[in-house]
Nucleic acid binder design. Sequence first.
DNA 1: TTTATAAAAGATGGTTTTATCTTTTATAAA
DNA 2: TTTATAAAAGATAAAACCATCTTTTATAAA
Lengths: 148, 148
Amino acid sequence: MISKACQYGIRAAIFIASRRNDGIKLNVKQIACEVDAPEAFTAKILQELNKHRIITSLKGPYGGFFIEEFQLEQPVINIVNAIDGMSVFKECGLGLKQCSASHPCPMHDQYKIARDALQNAFQQTSIRHLALQVNEGSSFINNLVLKN
Amino acid sequence: MISKACQYGIRAAIFIASRRNDGIKLNVKQIACEVDAPEAFTAKILQELNKHRIITSLKGPYGGFFIEEFQLEQPVINIVNAIDGMSVFKECGLGLKQCSASHPCPMHDQYKIARDALQNAFQQTSIRHLALQVNEGSSFINNLVLKN
DNA sequence: TTTATAAAAGATGGTTTTATCTTTTATAAA
DNA sequence: TTTATAAAAGATAAAACCATCTTTTATAAA
Ligand code: FES
Ligand code: FES
């Protein structure tokens, strides 16, 4: 549906948002660990999110990644756009070069419903909202580890 | 969303179904050409669909691919299952190892709506139904070629 | 039975995605 | 200014996916 890079990116952004307070900054190691993502790959993704101003970074000692107040209100779809682009929300479900109502594939009507629902899911949800859920303990950005 | 192999497979199956009449059989070249798919790759996919009894094949002269009456009623999700498997309809949208309501990711509720809509799209549509649309001329399994 | 035909099976190559490692740059504190 | 720290940038490696090519097998007609 969306790439692994994008999934890691969303989880990371939510985590950073969930830990936002005073001037605290998080480094790659902490972030990757907390969201169950490979560290070096996460670094690349965070770099990309910083370029797109989804999050903010600061180099050097006491540096790291953090999210600013104005960035919290962004919809999650901004992250998808930064990493995967918007094509998943536009492309034909059966792989035709163009998706259009005037030259539709046989599944166009049904597929479009699902595709639009997916777009709405990412469009109508802000990073702040998701971070809040995590802080409440009602949802999680890491895997459940089952005990013996 | 779904793999290219799967998209080609669905288009090919619909095409074969749309040409079903008497004992006519279609060969790979014709099918690949009509659905705008690479020929050798299409051969591999048709092979897989035959294994899963989505379509039927016969080797030798006057052989080729065709679809039997009882196969027409199958939902398109059977093709997705044969090629990609069912994981796309079960997996967490944010990449957690398990999608569950008891340990949900922050997007679980919204994502599940879209994912279920996608599953319904493929589950509630039969190959026959889509082939009929193509025969009516109301939808297409190949790309629109724009003239000068 | 021989021959031609078309799919099946198996081997191989290219591209994209996922992931890691090394070097460089920025920055804050000492 | 020096030093330590952490991200940025760039190079490289591994895996998955997309695609093609060659050899084998099945089958129908001559
Ligand atoms: S044309 Fe295929 S989904 Fe729109
Ligand atoms: S847990 Fe993420 S979609 Fe269900």
